[in-house]
């Protein structure tokens, strides 16, 4: 049976991390997954809507979920932050159906008033990582590998919202997750464990407290290097922005050259499925991915 999702692209994959958009598309194609892009969806707010009001975050994201519901499909994210925000809204509104129906009526009342479909609580919100682990399955994924990533030491960088924003995680412990490392195994790479893999990249502070933000990113990159990593791999484009795009500034704050490539999760997996580095936008990174590709014999 073909896997089919209502695909929520998010802001960053359509902007500064266009290579994530390209690689998710390429990976889906390689795995025979059908993505129906939610062209009318809106930014999840990345946790900032909630600071304006919980109601704003819930309403905008109830609309996003309702767009997937109208297609009778699960909503697929490929960003830890989008997943944590929309997934948590889905949890909260499903709970409200039972415990606080007045609140749900308030959300749906506004959606109807604005001509949007109401939230029904009839679908699920899932991240690409979880789709690989749970829907595709690690064995199936392993069987589709045409180019084993043998010898590549990968350090996961999960992103806070993928681990701790939702009350229930389908596969992982919030402090000691394994999904990313299991995917690394499936594609023939070697997982590297280090403390920073569950920590914050510092992105939320990067526009106004850059030194603190870059110290956070830098500490995690240093730990991954010390653990022997050839690259970081992240399921979150916001983490990617701070860890890759800003790595030269991070290096200045840390006072040392780091030079650790940072791959998006679908880039790594699609490489193992035979997709070319060019197609995955691996030439569009700030920190060159050349050492990774050389190690893999490209």
């Amino acid at each position: 049976m073909t896997l089919k999702y209502a695909y929520f692209p998010g802001c960053v994959a359509q902007g500064a991390c266009r290579e994530l958009y390209l690689s998710t598309r390429a990976l889906s194609q390689a795995l025979g997954i059908e993505l129906i892009e939610l062209k009318k969806a809106a930014c999840c707010g990345s946790g900032t809507f909630k600071e304006d009001s919980q109601f704003l975050e819930d309403t905008v994201n109830a609309r996003n979920i309702a767009l997937a519901e109208s297609l009778n499909l699960p909503l697929l994210t490929h960003c830890s932050t989008c997943q944590g925000v929309i997934g948590r809204v889905d949890e909260r509104l499903k709970k409200a159906e039972q415990n606080d129906p007045e609140y749900l009526d308030r959300v749906n009342g506004l959606l109807k008033q604005e001509g949007c479909s109401p939230y029904k609580g009839s679908t699920s919100v899932t991240h690409l990582l979880w789709a690989l682990v749970g829907d595709v399955g690690l064995e199936t994924l392993q069987a589709k590998v045409t180019r084993k990533l043998s010898g590549l030491k990968c350090a996961a960088f999960y992103g806070c919202y993928l681990l701790r924003a939702q009350e229930q995680l389908p596969y992982d412990d919030p402090y000691d997750p394994r999904s990313m490392e299991n995917v690394f195994h499936a594609v023939g790479a070697t997982p590297v464990f280090y403390r920073g893999r569950t920590q914050c990249c510092g992105w939320p502070l990067s526009s106004y407290a850059t030194t603190q933000s870059f110290k956070m990113a830098g500490g995690n990159i240093q730990e991954a290097i010390a653990a022997g990593a050839d690259c970081l791999v992240t399921p979150c484009p916001l983490c990617h922005l701070n860890l890759d795009s800003r790595q030269p500034e991070v290096e200045r704050v840390m006072g040392e050259k780091l030079g650790l490539p940072v791959l998006h999760l679908p880039q790594l997996v699609a490489l193992a499925l035979g997709v070319s580095p060019k197609e995955l936008g691996l030439d569009r990174h700030i920190v060159s991915t050349r050492p990774v590709l050389e190690k893999l014999g490209f």
Partner: peptide, 24 residues
């Protein structure tokens, strides 16, 4: 590095979203 977003494509639901945010 070719990473800079030269263009920006608005969501097809922008009008609806704007109105929803303002109402909320």
């Amino acid at each position: 590095s070719g990473k800079f977003p030269l263009t920006f494509e608005r969501s097809e639901g922008t009008e609806e979203v704007r109105s929803l945010i303002e109402a909320a």
